[in-house]
Design a protein around this nucleic acid. Sequence first.
DNA 1: AGCGCTATTGCGGACATCCACAATAGCGAA
DNA 2: TTCGCTATTGTGGATGTCCGCAATAGCGCT
Lengths: 204, 204
Amino acid sequence: MSGPTVHIVDDDAGIRDALSWLLASRGLAAVEWPSGEAILAALPLEDCACIILDVRMMGSSGPEVFDQLRARGCLAPVIFLTGHADVPVAVHALKAGAFDFIEKPFNDNQIVDVVLAAMATHAARQADAAQRRDLSDRLAALSPRETEVMRLMLTGSLNKQIADTLGIAVRTVEVHRSRILTKMGVRTAMELAHALSASPDPVG
Amino acid sequence: MSGPTVHIVDDDAGIRDALSWLLASRGLAAVEWPSGEAILAALPLEDCACIILDVRMMGSSGPEVFDQLRARGCLAPVIFLTGHADVPVAVHALKAGAFDFIEKPFNDNQIVDVVLAAMATHAARQADAAQRRDLSDRLAALSPRETEVMRLMLTGSLNKQIADTLGIAVRTVEVHRSRILTKMGVRTAMELAHALSASPDPVG
DNA sequence: AGCGCTATTGCGGACATCCACAATAGCGAA
DNA sequence: TTCGCTATTGTGGATGTCCGCAATAGCGCT
């Protein structure tokens, strides 16, 4: 397993090589792709920490490739390169979630800085995503009934009220509650709320 | 008190008037400013729902005015207008939080749509901000000791553990706890966690 | 000194939660 | 059908939480 890698997508071999050498000189591993189709065919990329994407290429354009990458679950930050002053394209790309949009010819130090920043945010997002996955997995492990009880718990309902709402005995709610806390890996209802507070709301 | 208003900042009276008329024809109230200095001097703007800002003007440039607006607490969405294909400026503006960046000459329907979208997000942000303010006010009303107890509560500590940590009696923690719930306007600790979960973390 | 606010603590009772032990029942897979 | 999982409920006791009543103490302001 190689380390975090920068993926360069450009139909101009000269640009690709220049970028590769530049990044290599700063100790960054890079992989080159001659077209959007090429990188899309290689998905999923295990070690993808950042993608540099030319806007105008033979075959699919940069924005088209970007959309495809996102559609296929690739969440790595994308840095666009363009040789043409195309403001609408830049605006659209950034609003769609691109990390940056840089005009050619680019400044070596500038692009390295942007790549480093992109890789940093990607690392942060990875850590975040790992926690979310863990949480999702635990939530998925709950039975339907347990999920239902949990939702009521989180609104602050007492066991008695939950039992009343669901038409079951308090004791049953207690059992569910206990199982929920065990499965979710927490010891109190407060910890559960705390753990779930970072989540957008996979429950409701 | 007038309703939500679009503020137009441009040193070209022709553009200003064209925009004003366009917006008026769609039932949107607009106010014109001949320069960045003019609108900055009029802060704070009560009814500001959206700001249209020309990039190149006599005096302060659009981006400079934008920074000043944000520095002075104006959170309204800003739509930049530019007559020059300036990709770096567009990229910087969007990354700084501009709502959109549009090239002149603009399409009437397009700009109206953007203005409407901006006003919609502003309304949503307003509602959000109101809740945050309410929460902040309530948090500010807590005594230092109460804040301390609350933080421990939110981590899932039992009253006994909190008492132990702070070196005080359990009864004292109970009193604090009760006051906290009252001041925060909730009835249970779970509701408190729930209410605070939307907050970035004004406590830690 | 007197007043108000915050922090502190004890007592006792009502109510809630947690849990081990024990048991019944439906439902889908092997 | 037997096995395993989920849902269900009860008893009883240990522990935790909530709250009214009552009281002491420091601190800053008038």
